[in-house]
């Protein structure tokens, strides 16, 4: 599944979810989404970085330069309280809607 297939609202939700456990840099966020979705979801970088900046601009994330576990300089993103609240709210909504959509699609097949 290509990155562009992911609706931007969904991508942002996934980013917030991945960052809920710990702060990560951009590359690691993409890898983590891939890993947790068992390689099904791959996020295109051209979508990921603007999304990160948007979330930061909106105040859901904070970002500062730091070191990756390999010791390389990278921008590390941290979930802020506001982002955590949004995650909780949007996650419930997304899950209930996708359940409903899945049900319809099952019936149709």
């Amino acid at each position: 599944m290509g990155a562009s297939d992911i609706v931007s609202g969904t991508l942002e939700l996934l980013v917030l979810q991945v960052l809920a456990d710990r702060p990560l840099h951009g590359y690691a966020i993409g890898q983590e989404i891939k890993r947790q979705s068992a390689d099904v979801l791959r996020i295109g970088e051209n979508v990921l970085y603007p999304a990160l900046h948007r979330l930061e601009d909106r105040g859901d994330l904070s970002a500062k330069w730091g070191r990756t576990p390999r010791g390389r300089e990278a921008k590390i993103y941290t979930l802020r309280a506001q982002g955590r609240r949004r995650l909780e709210r949007d996650r419930e909504r997304w899950l209930s809607r996708s359940d409903a959509a899945t049900q319809i699609l099952r019936g149709a097949s």
Binding site: G26, Y27, Q31, E45, Y49, T68, R70, R72, A74, K75
Partner: peptide, 17 residues
């Protein structure tokens, strides 16, 4: 410049992987 550095860091991590 900051944005470019961020992208470079991404590519470097990918290369390492």
């Amino acid at each position: 410049r900051d944005h470019r550095r961020e992208i470079e860091a991404h590519i470097a991590e990918r290369v390492d992987d």
